[in-house]
């Protein structure tokens, strides 16, 4: 004997005509013997008939006209968006050209910067020169690098950089005079 749940499943297949002949006979037998099963069958087959027989509604008389209008609008919109697509493409092309131009200009600027003799570089504090000990360098804890700076770019440890107040007053400090004397020399800073 199948469970009620299983019987419900079989009943649905029975109503859909999906059962084998053998299985159908089994269901027929149960329907003959079981009043509750018969009631379910009657109820479900009535439901199926009701659903199949539901009144079919019809589209409103202006359905085709409205659809036609919407398609026309759709077509004109797509034509417009096609033009919009063209203008978008030209905007992208313009933006691309500008980007290329910007890159070229940037490259030119950096090249000229390389050619220029350090004038725009910020002075290197002299403390850098002395901040690493030999042992540190030998132990390899510091990555070694070598940079050549003209002497004028190096702030001397004594006297410091020229103070703005000194410059305003036109006072020549000790650091100024040593800087001037070493102007054309190159200092090698090692890291």
């Amino acid at each position: 004997m199948t469970t009620w749940k299983q019987f419900e499943q079989d009943m649905m297949d029975y109503l859909d005509g999906l059962l084998s002949t053998e299985k159908r006979k089994e269901i027929d037998k149960r329907l003959a013997d079981d009043a509750e099963a018969l009631q379910l069958f009657n109820s479900l087959s009535a439901l199926k008939a009701q659903l199949r027989g539901l009144k079919r509604i019809k589209t409103s008389p202006d359905f085709d006209t409205v659809l036609r209008t919407r398609i026309r609008m759709e077509k004109s919109l797509s034509r417009r968006s096609l033009f919009a697509g063209d203008s978008r493409a030209s905007v992208f092309a313009l933006a691309g050209a500008l980007a290329v131009l910007a890159v070229v200009l940037a490259m030119n600027v950096s090249n000229s910067d390389l050619k220029r003799p350090y004038s725009n570089k910020s002075p290197l504090p002299a403390s850098v020169v002395t901040s690493f000990s030999r042992s540190q360098q030998d132990s390899g804890s510091i990555q070694r690098a070598r940079i050549n700076y003209p002497m004028e770019m190096v702030r001397l440890p004594q006297g410091g950089t020229r103070l703005e107040s000194d410059a305003r007053r036109g006072v020549t400090t000790a650091s100024d005079s040593s800087r001037n004397s070493l102007k054309d020399q190159i200092v090698t800073v090692e890291f």
Binding site: R56, K58, T59, F63, V66, L67, R70, I71, E74
Partner: peptide, 27 residues
């Protein structure tokens, strides 16, 4: 149009909305 209208009408419950959806389907 009518098959879809009946399907959508039973699904959404309103004929007006169903017509609109069927129109959109054809679009």
């Amino acid at each position: 149009k009518e098959q879809l209208l009946n399907f959508v009408y039973r699904f959404v419950g309103s004929q007006e909305e169903a017509e609109d959806i069927v129109q959109e389907t054809f679009l």
